[in-house]
Nucleic acid binder design. Structure first.
Length: 450
RNA sequence: GUGGCUGUAGCUCAGUUGGUUAGAGCAUCAGAUUGUGGUUCUGAGGGUCGGGGGUUCGAGACCCCUCAGUCACCCCA
């Protein structure tokens, strides 16, 4: 016999966990809906050509490829000249790596029918062949909201408000909405004359929190930057103060770059729009870079409250030419993503799940024999018609056992229809929380709330 | 892909310098209780000690290999 198991980095979700997860999903979904976003779902797998090259070298490595194991392909693969050729013969599909690229693909495929701007949300699992660790899974859910076909910075403002709304509704406090603009980072590379090293620079400075100023300096040197370059970057990283002070320092330091000035302007608008109040105001973090290199404007990352050591629970940004890679030029997109699995871990750690998420069956009818079950069934159907979750114990087991079942399931009410009740034409309703029991008529029962 | 730590009952873990038949708590099931749950008491089931090899008179323990889990790095939600 094989010991049953599941692949590492994947999880089963039991009833209690699913209920809690649904609470998060519902909070996010309803917020997306009230902001005017429409639902979209795409297949778990995409053609490999849709996905490869979109997430950088690392992304290609972490992609779960689907093996096409029919005999013809296997034979052809054996004759392949290189590993690369062999793998492209063996696999032409992969599980989706995120929701943004499939969305871009969908937009391009349906561009004739779509009314722009198109605002969609999508909540589905994605897969990454990563080594699992705390807060990192190989199958996890993302909840994305994106807008394509609108250049207005009001989108950015609204998306930040969505973060603020959802996290507040989930009862989270102490989270940080960190905002930056890719044009500023791009301008920094421009100022030191190393635009080709933009990605290296951003990856390094993004680690400032983790490895410190000295670590960043070492890494930048290793990536081919001169001492003079590094000095400029360190001045950049030293930027601090209030948002206004940071913006002013950026303006001075990056005065030579028009791109940077544009980015500073955008950042200033997003931070200071004043269209609506935030519960937790977004903050400027010039070291925020984010990995995906298709971002071109605002970038945002949500940090979990510092006490839980979880890091990022969401992120997003603007990409001016997302659909360009599929041949549809000049359409801008901006979007955000919630990492549900990490939010779950954070809420769990901070004990922020409301009790009410666990309520399921409200009333259990005890089964005390054929006549009892028959009478109970019709009362049960009345409750169900009223929208009250109810069940009947299907076996005519000992009362003790049935009561224990109700207790363990957390069912708050038990209805007893034994011989005496049937004779009197009454129902005994017991509240398991208080221990109180009362006999009521059928008419009174039809009015009871649970 | 790289490194550290951990694998004993369904779960959490004991198990002495290597020594007889591997234990506890929780959980499960049954009974005390033939119309009343939570608390209590009694009893039962449940293990090729992750797998394979080695050292030894003797291995859950020591050595090697392997698999799995976990944490960290890379990268990322």
């Amino acid at each position: 016999m094989i010991k049953p198991s599941i692949p590492s980095g994947t999880r089963d979700f039991g009833p209690v966990v699913v209920r809690k997860r649904n609470y998060i999903f519902q909070t996010i979904r309803s917020t997306f809906e009230v902001y005017g976003f429409q639902p979209l779902e795409t297949p778990a797998m995409e053609n490999l050509s849709t996905l490869t090259g979109k997430y950088g070298e690392e992304g290609d490595k972490l992609m779960f490829r689907i093996l096409s194991n029919n005999d013809d392909k296997l034979a052809a693969a054996k004759a392949a000249a290189s590993n690369k050729e062999m793998s492209s013969i063996l696999s032409d599909k992969a599980l989706r790596y995120d929701l943004t690229i499939p969305f871009a693909r969908y937009v391009v495929m349906n561009q004739q029918e779509l009314t722009l701007p198109f605002k969609r949300y999508q909540m589905q699992p994605v897969w990454r062949g990563d080594r699992p660790q705390k807060g990192r899974y190989r199958e996890f859910y993302q909840c994305d909201a994106d807008v394509v076909g609108s250049n207005s910075l009001l989108n950015e403002v609204e998306l930040l408000l969505i973060y603020d709304t959802v996290l507040t509704r989930l009862g989270l406090q102490g989270y940080e909405l960190r905002v930056n603009n890719r044009k500023i980072l791009s301008g920094l590379a421009e100022v030191i004359g190393k635009q080709d090293l933009l990605t290296d620079i951003t990856i390094s400075i993004d680690k400032l929190d983790k490895i410190g100023a000295e670590g960043v300096r070492k890494e930048l040197a290793a990536r081919g930057l001169t001492d003079a370059d590094i000095t400029t970057i360190e001045q950049f990283l030293a930027i601090s103060g209030t948002s206004e002070e940071k913006l002013a320092q950026l303006k001075t330091l990056l005065a030579a770059s028009e791109t940077a000035q544009k980015g500073i302007e955008e950042l200033s608008f997003v931070i200071n729009s004043g269209y609506a109040p935030f519960n937790t105001a977004p903050i400027i973090d010039v070291t925020l870079a984010r990995g995906l290199n298709y971002y071109t404007g605002m970038i945002v990352e949500v940090k979990a409250p510092a006490t839980v050591k979880m890091g990022s629970i969401g992120g997003g940004g603007r990409y001016d030419d997302l659909t360009g890679m599929f041949g549809m030029k000049g359409t801008s997109g901006v979007g955000i993503s919630f990492g549900v699995d990490r939010i779950y871990d954070v809420l769990e750690e901070l004990k922020l799940f409301p009790e009410a998420t666990q309520q399921s069956t409200k009333v259990l009818f005890l089964n005390l024999g054929e006549a009892s079950a028959r009478a109970a069934f019709s009362y049960m159907m009345q409750l169900r018609a009223r929208g009250i979750a109810a069940e009947l114990f299907h076996e005519s087991a000992k009362m003790d056992k049935q009561m224990k079942y109700a207790d363990k399931r957390g069912i708050p009410y038990v209805v007893i229809l034994g011989e005496s009740e049937l004779q009197e034409n009454l129902l005994s309703v017991k509240n398991l929380v208080s221990g109180q029991q009362e006999k009521v008529s059928a008419a009174a029962f039809a009015e009871m709330t649970f």
